[in-house]
């Protein structure tokens, strides 16, 4: 079973996406989806992604909820900044923080979260110095963003161990 489906989660997601795209559960569609998911999972084996173990589903759920709330709040704040600044330019700038997470998948997830949040944009991570460089739109909230990153760091360390 392990040889046929090296990444069961990925294969399931692929089959599900294939069925959603076709919007049918006919036998032919299902078979094509199964074959496709198997072949693509083998391709993924060739790519050799780093495996990481997720634990504590409740922790993941609460982390996702907190990220969604942060993104929503940041949406409103950035919309206010764009519409509100009449004349004076917004104070934006680069921020560098210490960030110590080893797992590559955790770093990728954090990069996506930071970029998806309108107020912040991920730029670079230095693996040797463990420094994270990102850009924020509103320097007034710099301390709040640093605190948010500390919380993310703790949560990611607990989820990816």
């Amino acid at each position: 079973m392990r040889a046929w489906f090296p990444y069961p989660l990925l294969s399931t997601a692929l089959v599900l996406m294939w069925l959603l795209l076709n919007q049918s559960v006919a036998l032919g569609t299902l078979l094509v989806g199964l074959v496709l998911s198997m072949v693509l999972a083998w391709v993924a084996v060739k790519l050799r992604p780093t495996r990481s173990h997720l634990n504590r589903l409740r922790r993941i759920a609460s982390f996702g909820l907190r990220v969604s709330i942060d993104i929503l709040r940041s949406n409103i704040a950035v919309a206010g900044i764009i519409l509100g600044t009449r004349g004076q330019p917004v104070r934006s700038g680069f921020v560098s923080v210490d960030f110590d997470v080893e797992d590559e998948n955790a770093l990728a997830l954090l990069a996506c979260i930071l970029t998806a949040t309108p107020g912040t944009a991920w730029l670079e991570y230095d693996r040797r110095k463990k420094k994270l460089l990102f850009h924020i739109l509103d320097l007034e909230n710099e301390i709040a963003w640093r605190r948010t990153l500390d919380r993310y760091e703790a949560a990611l360390k607990e989820i990816f161990q």
Partner: peptide, 29 residues
């Protein structure tokens, strides 16, 4: 309206790194 605000940000914000924040409003909102 959120999409429009994101695109307004694309032309109003002064530097490239500021403008990098604007399209995320259009996508996430």
């Amino acid at each position: 309206a959120m999409t429009l605000i994101g695109s307004i940000g694309l032309i109003r914000l002064p530097s490239f790194y500021d403008r990098l924040h604007a399209p995320t409003i259009a996508t996430s909102g």
